[in-house]
Nucleic acid binder design. Structure first.
Lengths: 147, 147
DNA sequence: TTGCATCCCATAAAATCCCATGATATACCA
DNA sequence: TGGTATATCATGGGATTTTATGGGATGCAA
């Protein structure tokens, strides 16, 4: 949960937000990150989340399962473990940073079982886009009052 | 639930009204807050309420669905846990306070499984608007006295 | 030896906890 | 019923702990 902006230093180190860390720590000492398939951002989760995804698709009889299978393979091929150090940081790779156009600061965006890491400006735009979309698709949520 | 006004101090702390707290305490030691999509106010609920919502989204679409991606970003990206301290307060963030234009006092409004936190003046207007709307849609309702 | 990655320590800022106080509501008793 | 004692609540300030972040040391590998 939550959206948090942290700095990325010259070594590529970023602090995993403490709220995130608290949750991860209960289950593991590392996270798994990979390039998002759909957006210019990094995605992260626990390894077990990826395993579960693979299992679900294996047992699925879904018509699209083959396509999903391919996507899953893409993710697995890209994914890498990132242990965090004693101060709670991970060291992101050039490949990931480049994919997300991240230079010296990064935004962590919660997604329930996963999270994303964005370039701050790009996330700002993306968030605006998503909000606009949500309002369009649910007219009942449209703001009514003006101030 | 009641409508209660409490002060917000320089640190962003607000007392969760004791009636609210009593209910929350039975199930958790913290609440989850996020910016209302439709109004200039903060919304709060129990984490399980959000989890349920996320589950509904997950089961209605697949892992790679763009719509699901957007919604989970919207919900979990914005929401944040707010544990209350030993005196029953939570510390609201700048982002939330700004969204609701809350400075030094806040109104808690019960909404069933959720509640909202408003800037007092804005809530006054909003309440008037809701009353007017209710009367318009149900002419049989006579105006009762206001307090 | 040199480059790279990991680990460790230091520090400043921020979030959290703890206690004190005043106010309000509730309970109790004459 | 009135009036006082008691408990609960809201609020303020200060102390303590956690976090984020920078710099440097250490170890491994090419």
């Amino acid at each position: 949960m939550d959206t948090i902006i942290n700095k990325v230093d010259a070594k590529g180190r970023v602090s995993l937000p403490s709220d995130y860390r608290a949750i991860v720590k209960e289950l593991s000492t590392e996270i798994v990150c990979y390039r998002s398939l759909s957006s210019p951002c990094i995605e992260g989760c626990l390894e077990e989340t990826l395993d579960k995804l693979a299992q679900d698709i294996e047992t699925s009889t879904d018509f699209f399962s083959e396509a999903q299978d391919n996507l899953t393979n893409l993710i697995f091929g890209d994914a890498k473990r990132f242990p965090f150090d004693s101060t709670g940081r991970i060291v992101l790779t050039e490949k990931l940073l480049k994919h997300a156009s991240i230079k010296d600061s990064a935004v962590f965006v919660g997604k329930g079982r996963k999270f994303q890491i964005w370039n701050p400006q790009n996330w700002e735009k993306e968030e605006a886009r998503i909000r606009a979309e949500a309002l369009k698709n649910r007219p009942s949520l449209r703001p009514q009052e003006k101030e």
